[in-house]
């Protein structure tokens, strides 16, 4: 048990914080909704109803999609783009998908490489892009979920105000959908860009997200 915790400290800690903050979001979200209901002389809804409703899930998916887009785009961009001096970049000169030798593919695979790295053909091609594909699929699925749940929330609001409801294809062209989407994207891109450039000159001793404290500013990709 202790070994399990030690071996999985990062994923356990973030998983726990994720669940705690999700519960916090649910409690505060339900309270915010019921406060608005009270202001408009509407009926309050139960906590159980709120956490199973599109109101809650549209908000959850809206944030999920932007996080997964951020990582998907970052995984993709860092194949091709370099930031000199950044720990978040590859070394200059290694831009691109790199050789089979550098990536330990086919005959260059070692005995303990994942099997699909060595077998060649479609399995190696698929496995070579599996992280980007899975992160990208989660992004697309959560963005779709945001649009589907967001439309229900939008239509409920429209009905409350005796306004016409909209179809899904119409909803994805509304400013409501794009405002929910872009307000999340902009912050993700700023944070990623900051991480890329701040790690050139700033350090955190002991973190692999930083270069070693004594590493020169000009050194690119040297995890501490």
């Amino acid at each position: 048990m202790l070994r399990f915790v030690r071996d999985n400290g990062l994923s356990l800690a973030f998983g726990a914080v994720f669940l705690a903050t999700l519960v916090g979001q649910a409690i505060s979200g339900a309270d915010t909704f019921n406060h608005a209901q009270a202001l408009h002389n509407g009926d309050p809804i139960s906590f159980g109803h709120y956490v199973t409703s599109a109101l809650f899930w549209a908000d959850v998916m809206e944030n999920w999609q932007s996080e997964y887009l951020q990582f998907t785009l970052y995984i993709f961009a860092t194949i091709w783009l370099i930031q000199k001096g950044s720990n978040e970049s590859k070394k200059p000169g290694r831009a691109g998908r790199e050789s089979a030798e550098q990536q330990l593919l086919g005959e260059h695979a070692s005995p303990d490489s994942p099997r699909w790295a060595g077998v060649g053909g479609w399995r190696t091609a698929l496995y070579s892009n599996s992280l980007l594909m899975v992160m990208g699929a989660i992004w697309i699925a959560s963005w779709l979920a945001q649009s589907l749940a967001g439309r229900i929330v939008y239509n409920a609001d429209q009905l409350d105000h005796q306004a016409p409801t909209v179809s899904w294809p119409t909803y994805v062209t509304t400013s409501d959908f794009w405002n929910r989407t872009l307000q999340n994207w902009q912050s993700e891109f700023l944070a990623v860009g900051s991480m890329v450039i701040l790690s050139v000159y700033l350090r955190q001793r002991g973190s692999p997200e930083s270069k070693p404290v004594g590493a020169p500013h000009s050194e690119t990709a040297s995890s501490g």
């Binding site: 999920w64 979920a145 945001q146 589907l148």
Partner: peptide, 30 residues
Amino acid sequence: MRSVRLMFAIYLVLIVAGLAYAIALGILEH
């Protein structure tokens, strides 16, 4: 590595379950 594989599976199941629920909710709740 067995415990790491378990964490990997837990994360994937959690994510897929959340996505599946939200998509189903979005399609079914009109």
